[in-house]
Design a protein around this nucleic acid. Structure first.
Lengths: 230, 230
DNA sequence: AGGGCAAATTCCTATATAGGACTTGTTGAC
DNA sequence: GTCAACAAGTCCTATATAGGAATTTGCCCT
């Protein structure tokens, strides 16, 4: 492991552990260099790398600060239902099952086959009708830390919940969108006959750029206006 | 302008002008440093910055090379129609108008209001039915360089055409997807009554990260399976 | 011809150093 | 009290240098 990698890693660890929190100022370049026993140049390289990935932000003459919400509006798309005037329609999330499943799939490929995987299955009701089917996959190791968490928290934005409750913030999200046939079980859950629908897949990564969650969202033909917004 | 910026810019210019082509090896760090009258460290910083943006690739012990197709499969989504077996359906592109328009819109905001803008309007026929309406906006300055180009070239992938014919390759693409009501004129062109549809907007940037094109694609409810693939 | 070794070339990591640019707080003149 | 000048602290750009790591090349030997 290079010194550069060690410095990056240590700083990430401080943020992960909560020793450094959003908005906090990091020690100056020279202080960090002294602390890590490396040259200032190495610290600079580490800081600009972390700044580039959005974890911290550097301000000329002021200092280096831990960024606010890492994942910004520009990074990820959300599903929304809107009425004709463009207003968001109210939605209601119901958790239908939380189970450990042995099945293989894109989630196991992504999260790693060695550990067990938990699926949080949810149905989202928009304007009085069940419109969205959501599967959120987590590794068992991370899921165990959810024991103390209120069950109602699972009916919120799970990515945000992971960051706030478990201090497992998401650094970035890969996202795919498809518009294709829906599989049988999903059709049944949404109360649809064989029809094409809308499928969005997301892969979330931790601050260390390690796999964190796999999220799949499906929707049938819309009775309202489905909008994908940033 | 900093030396670093000058070095980056000069290298980009060499690629843009065709002096360096895909797969070519750049001069070594020390040669570049001597050529630009800067230190090796500055050249290294410039090269790793360009490598990070995907323009070049560095190979330990071998050299630095101009990357192949800059915009990879991972960077941009494409629209495809597929049959039940997942095979791509053949499509046919017809150019319906190429005009200078004074209207304001997202394109003028992006491409800059100072210059005139050209709209290349196209209809895409999939499996015998007009399914997609496409608007491709360019600045007038860039468009003029298209004079010598065969008109049939406008019925191909315009981003690729810009790169090959005009040596204006696209470095990156911003992309938004919406599923919403379609405006009247689009409905008429696709032969639809008032219906929600599928809207994809793209903004292309040059090697210098300057605005290059604005592209908007609309599709109605699909009679085949519409897939957005990378 | 082919194998093995050394040298040259290339990029990579790291250090030490110098001065510039931006921000903030203090001091002093008015 | 207000404003200008100053100083200290911070990040930013750039240089020169050293050695290490990966690859290619040339040469010698068999």
């Amino acid at each position: 492991m290079t010194k550069l990698a060690r410095v990056c890693d240590s700083i990430v660890a401080r943020i992960e552990s909560g020793a450094l929190r959003e908005g906090d100022r990091l020690p100056s370049e020279s202080q960090l260099a002294a602390g890590f026993r490396v040259s200032v140049g190495t610290v600079q390289k580490a800081l600009s790398r972390l700044a580039h990935s959005g974890l911290i932000s550097r301000e000329h003459g002021r200092g280096t600060f831990v960024s606010g919400s890492r994942i910004g509006a520009a990074d990820v798309n959300y599903l929304r239902f809107r009425d004709a005037e463009g207003r968001d329609l109210p939605h209601y999330i119901r958790v239908t099952s939380v189970r450990r499943l042995m099945r293989k799939g894109p989630w196991s490929e992504f999260l790693g086959a060695q550990a067990g995987h938990i699926r949080i299955e949810r149905l989202i009701n928009v304007g009085g009708k069940v419109e969205i089917y959501s599967e959120f996959w987590l590794r068992e190791t991370e899921f165990r830390r959810l024991n103390g968490v209120d069950h109602g928290a699972l009916a919120k934005n799970l990515r945000v919940m992971l960051g706030q409750q478990l201090s497992l913030p998401t650094l970035r999200v890969d996202q795919w969108i498809r518009f294709d046939r829906l599989p049988q079980p999903v059709l049944r859950k949404l109360g649809l006959r064989d029809q094409p629908g809308f499928i969005m897949e997301m892969r979330g990564y931790t601050l260390r750029d390690q796999p964190l969650f796999y999220h799949k969202v499906s929707a049938g033909p819309f009775s309202h206006n489905l909008v994908i917004v940033r």
